[in-house]
Design a protein around this nucleic acid. Structure first.
Lengths: 203, 203
DNA sequence: TGTCAACTGGACTCGCAGTACAGTCAGGAC
DNA sequence: GTCCTGACTGTACTGCGAGTCCAGTTGACA
């Protein structure tokens, strides 16, 4: 156990779990240092204040999420070259992934920070914003590739459709969290998948 | 200005605005009493603690939201008796309503409490849960009426479809809040409307 | 005139964020 | 072998906000 190397990561792990469980403000530095088995001084050595912690958490989360999407749709593309089917397979994989998580998805840091955003500085809010804009761009591109092959049955705003992926996931996670159920997010994704099938179905 | 009658409501008004702007924990009793022009003692006369405030806020919010939906779909029904068109008109009205709000929708208390739920006691969480289940039932009923007339083009889980109304609104509000844009929620609703048009279109 | 609800105002405790800083300790540079 | 540095520990402090306690005020109504 090389303590030095990963104390920072350990802090982030503990903090992320706690924040997703009960929110940022409700998570005390006291319990983080207890969980990570370090002293308060040690915490402030790594993070200037709680804001710096929030920023680091968001950065890491966004990276992981992006890698996850990359991997998911790369696997989907291997299974089918057609852009529509690639998207449908990718969403199915995403839904399965959300469902497999035993205690339910930990919940999305994005929404969590969005609803407490005055706690954070501009840097954190910008990070949040950039992440969502990145996903908009990613999915918008994929939908445009689909539209090149399958003309949409109804006119849709491609930016908004791109946002809908994020929105459906975020919304599903809010429901899941509030209801204490475990599969709402994956069900919502499957419904969105049906939407795409209808929207891009050949006439 | 009959101060006595509505001090409680005034506290709730101030608190709701503050909580929606920056989250529950970040809202201090200090600023609430300053805004409502009462003393700290006066606040605790009306609310045992912050939890009681949260509960009262949620109760009021849910009532308002339900009344809003009642009104919206009643007006839609006046315009068209057909269940599908009634739903489509209602969603259009909802989208317009969200867009008209000058500074954007204040954001949904449901999501806000969902992401900070360990701060609240069981009563508050149950209230939150019951509200969402109520909306599920409401919209599920409407979708079943539609399905009686228009057979869905693809099989869908009616509970999940009912949840999708709440989910799309919540998700849209998260995006709106995080992006600092103002019409994401209404755009998402309009996309969902297109979904329904495709799903229930006659063959 | 007395009662009561709706407060005001102030003093207090407690927990948490953040600051400051002095000291420890292991591992590599030289 | 010593020196230096990065990664901490430990303690003591300030300041803020939640929540408690309570004594006193005020205006309406019986």
């Amino acid at each position: 156990m090389d303590k030095k190397v990963d104390t920072r990561s350990r802090i982030l792990d503990i903090a992320e779990a706690a924040v997703l469980e009960k929110g940022f403000e409700a998570t005390s530095i006291e319990e983080i240092v207890a969980g990570a088995e370090i002293s308060r001084g040690g915490f402030f050595y790594h993070f200037k204040d709680k804001n710096a912690l929030a920023r680091a958490m968001l950065e890491r989360y966004i990276e992981v999420e992006n890698a996850l999407y990359d991997d998911l749709f790369a696997r989907a593309r291997e299974l089918n070259d057609d852009p529509l089917h690639c998207m449908l397979i990718g969403l199915k994989l995403l839904a399965e992934l959300l469902e497999e998580m035993p205690a339910g998805h930990p919940g999305c840091v994005i929404a969590s920070t969005a609803y407490q955003d005055r706690l954070f500085d501009q840097g954190v809010r910008d990070l949040n914003r950039q992440a969502i804009l990145g996903w908009r761009k990613r999915f918008r591109g994929m939908f445009e590739d689909i539209a090149d092959v399958y003309e949409p049955r109804e006119p849709v705003n491609m930016d908004a459709l791109g946002d809908m992926v994020s929105g459906v996931v975020e919304g599903g996670l809010v429901l899941q969290r509030a209801l204490g159920e475990h599969n709402n997010a994956s069900e919502q994704i499957m419904l969105f998948r049906t939407y795409l099938k209808l929207l891009f179905s050949p006439r």
